[in-house]
Amino acid sequence: MSVIIPYIDKPNPVTGVTNAKLGIWLFLASEVMLFGALFSTLIILRSSATDWPAHGSDVLNVPLATLNTVFLITSSVTIVLSWASLKMKNLMKFKLYMGLTVLLSFGFLIIKYFEYSSKFHHEHYPSTSTFYAVYFTMTGLHGLHVIGGIITNLYLMGPGSKMWKTEPERFTGRIECAGLYWHFVDLVWIFLFPALYLL
């Protein structure tokens, strides 16, 4: 007899969710605490400083960041469309929308790269001031989350999609979880953008 773990593809009738969905929600709760701590850091440092060293709207590239915001919001839409395509049993459309999501995320990272390198070019490093320290640390950690999302999404689009043939419901569930994670990454950016670039 092999080990059987229930509720992998179908939701538990009592709780109404699959294991993976409950798991991803719990994981996101802990992520909220992680970024919550970082935002608190920003608030505490900024409110206790007599002279906040720099304002994002003066020193950061707001148009580029706005473009990035558009990229991420669009990618949140495309990942929902990819999930909806699976619901309509259309694997090709799923791959198309997932591909778009990954492309948009790459676009985000490329813009981030230009932003970072222009800062380094002007000799602005994390050690320059607490503003840059917060800026690089928070956008850097967010960037790592984007990279993590890209790797997961690429896997689900490529080798991971084999599961569609054997366990379509479980695979759709996985895409839903990836989507939830991606919405979270998007949401963090929506908080980061005004906190760092506009205020």
């Binding site: 802990s30 605490m33 992680l34 701590a37 850091t41 050690s127 001031s129 320290a133 640390t137």
Partner: peptide, 23 residues
């Protein structure tokens, strides 16, 4: 729920030690 803030703090202290920040 309690561990992530320490993870954040650990990252910030690492930044202070390795990247020269002043959190």
């Amino acid at each position: 729920l309690a561990f992530p803030p320490l993870e954040a703090a650990g990252v910030l202290q690492l930044m202070d030690r390795l990247a020269g920040t002043s959190f």
